[in-house]
């Protein structure tokens, strides 16, 4: 079924998925339909690399896209569950707030960029800058991630079952990075950290949520050396006396 503008809107609360064929329905119409839905599931056919599919969801709808998508798929997702049977272009699930985004293939640049919450699962590889400036999202990558991943990452978890490219975690704040394979190089202020029991437990939960089979014991953890922070605890006495003098 591919609803035309003059037909009654589909009933997304029905148990059967509403099928939208992008060969016949415009992307704008699809996104409008998804934004109006409060629940239910949708199946999208013939995406053919189109940009901006299933962006800005803000309800518990589930969207399954059959084929590869272009830029910013599932961007700004809130509550929704979006899965892609294919690959994704730049900015998959960028600025995700909550909900789940999963792709069976690989994603190019900046997957999960600036994400504040929710879960992004990439079964294949992610390209450069995966999780750049992530602010609370959890990202699980079945393959490898490209260079400059988790650049300026602030919060959340990046789990990589494969390898990480150059400059992993450059200028990182407080996000946690778990890598099973090789790390080509760590970025400025990123360091390897001890894998304590709470990290093993957290990683096991993330792998489970992502449906990935892996032993948490095989991973190494990376995070911030906190050397680039503006504020240094060692400088606190000097800072306080300067303030006293100024007041």
């Amino acid at each position: 079924m591919s609803p035309a503008a003059d037909e009654a809107p589909p009933d997304p609360s029905s148990a059967v998925a509403v099928t939208v064929d992008l060969g016949e329905t415009s992307r704008r119409e699809l996104n409008r339909m998804l934004h109006q839905a409060q629940a239910g599931s949708f199946r999208v056919l013939n995406p053919r690399g189109a940009h901006g599919l299933a962006c800005g969801l803000d309800a518990r709808v589930s969207v399954e896209i059959e084929g590869s998508v272009g830029y910013y798929c599932a961007g700004m997702n809130k509550q929704g569950s979006v899965s892609v049977n294919g690959n994704a272009g730049t900015g998959l699930a960028e600025n995700i707030m909550s909900g789940t985004v999963r792709i069976t293939g690989s994603a190019t640049m900046s997957a999960g960029a600036t994400g504040c919450g929710g879960l992004v699962v990439i079964e294949g590889d992610a390209g450069s800058r995966c999780g750049i400036s992530m602010k609370g999202v959890d990202i699980v990558v079945g393959g490898s991630v490209g260079h400059m991943s988790a650049f300026m990452a602030q919060a959340g978890n990046l789990v990589v079952l494969g390898d990480a490219g150059a400059d992993l975690g450059d200028s990182i704040y407080e996000a946690r990075l778990f890598v099973r394979g090789d790390v080509e190089s760590l970025g400025s202020d990123a360091v390897q950290k001890e894998m304590r029991p709470e990290h093993v437990a957290a990683l096991a939960r993330l792998l489970d949520a992502a449906g990935m089979e892996a032993d948490p014991g095989d991973f190494r953890r990376y995070g911030s050396a906190r050397g680039l922070y503006n504020f240094h605890i060692d400088d606190i006495d000097a800072e306080l006396s300067a303030r006293r003098e100024a007041s």
């Binding site: 053919r48 690399g49 940009h51 590869s68 272009g70 690959n87 272009g89 690989s106 190019t108 640049m109």
Partner: peptide
């Protein structure tokens, strides 16, 4: 530059697709 151009080609469903490394 973008996959949507490649999506126009025959047998694209069976193509190996990747991002060229830097």
């Amino acid at each position: 530059s973008e996959y949507r151009a490649i999506a126009q080609l025959p047998d694209v469903g069976h193509a190996e697709v990747w991002t060229p490394a830097p």
